[in-house]
Amino acid sequence: MADILITGCSGGGKTTLLDELAARGCRTVAEPGRRLIAQGIAPWDDAEAFLRAAADMAMADLAAHASIDEPVFYDRGLFDALAGLERIGVTPVADALGEERPYAGGVFLAPPWPEIYAEDSMRRHDFEAARDEYEHLAELLPKLGYSPLTLPKLPVGDRADFVLRKLAIA
């Protein structure tokens, strides 16, 4: 087992799912963007600098867990930051990654879920922007050679069961 990415729509329940996986004893890594905002680095101040910092943090997260022999679940990660840079016209993700393909354990994609979406102090964009972000990731991941599994719109415990079953962990 290796690095497993939980990505997709903002407000789609990713962090809640990671919290549930952590409560079940799984190793998880918090979203780089939220950690940066907690440090006072915000995307609304300088999007490119924020996304570059998120990419650097995601790469450091991957390096820090490289020798771990158990599954590691990442809340967002390198692809999210690089996809953001691509969306603002900085660098295509494929160019930034080269041949590297982290998250060999798999990728799960949280779809847009308006019933649970909520803005907060760290998520200032609206649902339409979140949906656009999701669509970009959903189109990008197969181009990078991934076959992301879409998370079902189910209660968090059932979602966690789904992830663990798909990975043959449960």
Score class of each variant (00 low, 15 high):
residue 106 G to Y: 07
residue 151 L to P: 09
residue 13 G to D: 11
residue 63 A to T: 08
residue 97 L to T: 01
residue 111 P to I: 03
residue 40 G to W: 03
residue 19 D to V: 04
residue 88 I to L: 13
residue 36 L to H: 02
residue 131 R to V: 14
residue 161 D to W: 05
residue 154 L to Y: 00
residue 147 S to Q: 15
residue 50 F to C: 00
residue 32 P to H: 03
residue 66 A to Y: 08
residue 106 G to I: 07
residue 134 Y to D: 07
residue 13 G to E: 09
residue 82 L to C: 05
residue 81 A to T: 04
residue 152 P to R: 07
residue 38 A to N: 07
residue 29 V to I: 13
residue 22 A to E: 12
residue 62 L to R: 02
residue 119 E to N: 13
residue 134 Y to S: 07
residue 133 E to N: 15
residue 160 A to P: 02
residue 125 H to A: 09
residue 72 V to G: 03
residue 151 L to N: 04
residue 114 P to R: 12
residue 81 A to N: 04
residue 102 P to T: 04
residue 149 L to K: 14
residue 89 G to I: 07
residue 123 R to V: 01
residue 8 G to R: 03
residue 5 L to H: 02
residue 105 G to V: 04
residue 120 D to T: 03
residue 124 R to C: 03
residue 67 S to C: 12
residue 12 G to H: 08
residue 1 M to I: 12
residue 142 P to I: 09
residue 169 I to R: 13
residue 166 K to L: 13
residue 127 F to L: 14
residue 38 A to V: 00
residue 34 R to Y: 02
residue 128 E to Q: 12
residue 24 R to I: 00
residue 110 A to P: 08
residue 125 H to L: 10
residue 38 A to F: 01
residue 131 R to M: 10
residue 67 S to R: 14
residue 103 Y to G: 06
residue 55 A to P: 06
residue 89 G to V: 08
residue 40 G to A: 06
residue 106 G to V: 06
residue 65 H to S: 13
residue 12 G to V: 08
residue 76 R to C: 11
residue 139 E to M: 14
residue 54 A to M: 11
residue 48 E to S: 05
residue 11 G to Y: 07
residue 102 P to K: 04
residue 142 P to C: 10
residue 70 E to Q: 15
